[in-house]
Amino acid sequence: MKSNFKSWPVIVVLTLVSLPLLIMFTFQLVDTFTNPIPGSIWPESFTVEHWRFLWEEPELGRSSIWVVTWNTFVFAATTAVAVTTISLTAAYALSRLNFPARRFFLGGLIILHAFPTITLIIAIFLILQFLGLYNSLIGVILVKSALELPFGIWIMKGFYDTVPWEIEMAGVQDGASRFTVWWKLVLPQVQPGLSALLIFSFLSGWSEFVLPLVLAPGNEAQVLSTYLSALILDDTKPDFNLFKSVGMFYAIPVIAIYLIFQKKLMNIYGGGSKG
């Protein structure tokens, strides 16, 4: 591809800016497999002992990493599916149907999207406790989904808005019910938004920290972010290389998903246009 400006200055600038991050990540990776001499930054010997948490029995008071990983996966996946399904239907209604107080709901979406959710945490805590969902994975899933919804609905509404209404009218004229029209004719048009939202809300659930920390601090509902935080807070036997290894383990799925789906994720910021 020929471009109207030289690409190497851009590459140099981008490399310089991302260099600190790259160095940090490199050393994190290196440190998880090596033992450095104290006081030196260069590694001395190769070892896999920092990854022993993957196969050894957990220490007393700690959950097994696999249980925690499973919890995290269930939390992220359920949240993603819930957010996506509800956004798909709610956004269609907001984009297409003329129902009472439509403008109010649209305005409410924007406000909720901009609202600092952390200020709600005490109220949510009380509600969950009242409902008996405190310290359970279901409770956190419900809260996380609800907080993620305004963003999801807003994004999906943008995608629906780009679908020409004539397509729906043509479907209705062809004899299809409104539901068939939505399912067979409209959904395929917003499919890029659907996949992007699904991945995005999965990642958002995967990296969620505050909600599980406050609303489900017990061992049964522990997720990787809270596991990691518990690890560093445990100052009786600080093990930074273990911390780094768990951190690496935690980040691997995110990196993998980004590498595989980066094109689909870009859709969300492209406002639904194909780029």
Binding site: E166, I167, A170, G171, D174, G175, A176, T180
Partner: peptide, 25 residues
């Protein structure tokens, strides 16, 4: 039967499926 100004063909379907849609319904 209606023909719209912008034709309103279903972009994700082949021409055969487009024409067959009213019959499939």
């Amino acid at each position: 039967g209606v023909v719209f100004q912008n034709y309103a063909l279903y972009p994700h379907m082949s021409i055969r499926d487009n024409i067959a849609f009213p019959l499939k319904v």
